[in-house]
Structure formats: structure tokens, C-alpha cells
Simulated assay, not measured.
Amino acid sequence: MGLSAGLMSSRRLGRELGRQLVWGLFFAGILTAWGLLFVMQPGLDLPAGWQDLGADYLTSLCRSTAGTAGYAPVLAMWALMALAMMAPTTVPALKTYTDLAHAGAASASGLAALIGGYLLVWLGFSAVGAAAQVLLSGFGLIDPLGRSTAAFLNAGLLATAGAYQFSRLKQACLTSCQSPMMFFMAHWQPGAAGAFGMGLRLGAVCLGCCWALMLLAFVAGTMNLAFMGLAMALMAIEKMPVIGRTLTVPVGLALLAGAVLTVFFALPIMN
């Protein structure tokens, strides 16, 4: 009896250590993404010796236009941006999943698979965002900092994001993000394969909630760290069950007002 209890205790300890390892790698990945995005900032003076770490290559990704840099480097930048901005916003959902581990429902491999499925969805979004940036750059509508140079494009993006705040799809996705326990109860699938599937679904729900806000990177600049930080904080707070519900309307109105002001200030220039 004592040996059996000891084995069960050892297994529980092993599972807990495995989950903690996954959490550690998850947060290390986020910090690494922010660090790389900082290193890639245009105009950053790097200390001597950083060339050996490949820093010159990283900075070169953002020191030329998207059209001349090519698709692969821009995709790498978008993938890092998605990891840095969106991964932190899903911590409550991941915490809910690990809480289920105490009842024997979740595991370290399941947590890793859940994260993998979630990030795969945002990698797909990054592929589309990078393609859009390269295309717009080719038409001269995006500057080297990934910022729109056309007032009509800025106004359109702001108006789209603002109007989407009031859409039924936004509300449905946001409700799921604000209630991760209900999400897992409704879509639970056992095992690592099931967790991967839930990760894909969770990523799709998160994408449905945040895609329009993410596209505002073209307004502020895709390499604007201040925008990334503020947008990440906004999307994370919006997913909170109580305070998040109070943000949707004000944010939507502010974005629509921004679209109107963008058009208003652009009219004298166009005339």
C-alpha cells in the first residue's frame, strides 16, 4: 500500500514538474519574442560583438521596406509580433486548463499541445498579415516601419476595427475568451491530440476577437513597440470577465472617432 502511494505521489510530482517546464518555456518564448523585436528596431545602435549573435540579420529585416526585404523576413517579424502580443492574453485560459490537471484531466503534453494549436492559428494570421504588408509596400502604401502612408487606408482600418467592436461575432468570441472554464466544458477533448484541437479552436476564437485590433499595426507601424504593448494590454484586459465588458463600446467609439478625424484632417491635403 505504501509503495503504491509512493508511486502515485512520484507520478503526480512528475506531471507537475512537466507542467511547470511547459510554463517556463512558454514565458521564455514570450520574453524572447519581445527581445528580438527590440533588437530588430530600425535605428538601434547595437554594441560591438552582437554580429556574432546574428543581430545584424535581425535588424536588417526592418531596415528595408517589406517589398525589398522579401516575404520570409516579414513573416518572421509578424510571427514574433503575434507571439509577443497574443500569447500573454491567453494565460487565463491556459491557467484554467492546468487547473483541470488537479482532477487528472490535463497533462504537461496536453498543455504543450494546447499552446501549439493556439499559436498555429496565429501563425496563419501572421502569414496573411505579412503577405498584406508586402503587397501594400509594393504599391507604396506602407513605409519601411510598416506604417500606412495613405489616409484612406488608415481611416478604413480604424473604421473596420471600430465597427467590429459592435458585431455579434466579436461579442460571441469575446464571451468565450472571458469564460475559459465554460469553453473547456463545452469543447473538452481528452489527450494531447484533443488538447491540440482545443488549442486550434481557442486560437480561432481569439482570432475572431482580436484580428481587427491587430490590423491597426498598419496604422501605428508594425515595428512600433509602444503600439504592441498598448494593444496587448488592451486585448488582455478586454478578455477579463468583468472589466472587459466595459471596454468594448468605448474602444469601438474611440476607433470610429479616430477614423472620422483621419478623414477630416486628410481633406485639406487632398483638396
Rank of each mutant, 00 (worst) to 15 (best):
D56V: 13
Q51R: 12
G14T: 14
A33H: 07
T65W: 05
E16F: 15
R15V: 13
L61M: 14
V39W: 00
G24F: 06
G43Q: 01
A48M: 09
L83Q: 11
A33K: 02
P47L: 00
Y71L: 08
G49I: 01
G35W: 00
G35C: 04
F26P: 01
C62T: 06
L44Q: 04
P73F: 04
R11Y: 15
L80W: 09
E16M: 15
L53V: 07
T68A: 01
L25D: 08
T59N: 09
L31T: 01
W23R: 11
S9N: 14
A69Y: 07
L61I: 14
L58H: 12
D45A: 07
G14Q: 13
A72G: 05
E16Y: 15
E16T: 15
S10A: 14
P42V: 02
M85L: 13
L46D: 11
G49F: 06
L44R: 12
A76Y: 09
F26R: 05
G24Y: 07
S60Y: 11
V39M: 06
T32N: 01
P47V: 00
L58R: 09
G29K: 05
W50V: 02
I30W: 07
R15H: 15
D56C: 13
G14N: 13
G35M: 00
V74Q: 02
Q51W: 11
Q20W: 14
L36N: 04
G18N: 15
L44F: 09
R12D: 15
S10I: 10
T32K: 02
S60K: 10
I30S: 06
L36Q: 03
R11A: 15
A55G: 06
Y57H: 12
L37E: 07
L25V: 11
M85V: 12
A28E: 01
G43H: 03
S10M: 13
S9K: 15
S9E: 15
G43Y: 04
Q20C: 12
G54S: 10
A69E: 03
L25H: 09
G43F: 02
L46A: 11
L21H: 12
A69R: 06
M40L: 02
Y57Q: 11
Y57W: 14
L25G: 13
P47N: 02
F26A: 08
L36P: 05
Q51D: 12
T59Y: 03
G29P: 09
F27G: 04
T32F: 06
S64R: 03
S64Q: 04
G18C: 14
L53C: 03
M8V: 14
G29H: 09
P73R: 04
G24I: 05
G67F: 11
V22R: 07
W23C: 11
A82F: 05
W78T: 02
S9V: 14
Q41R: 12
M77T: 00
L31M: 08
L25F: 12
W23Y: 13
W50D: 06
G70I: 08
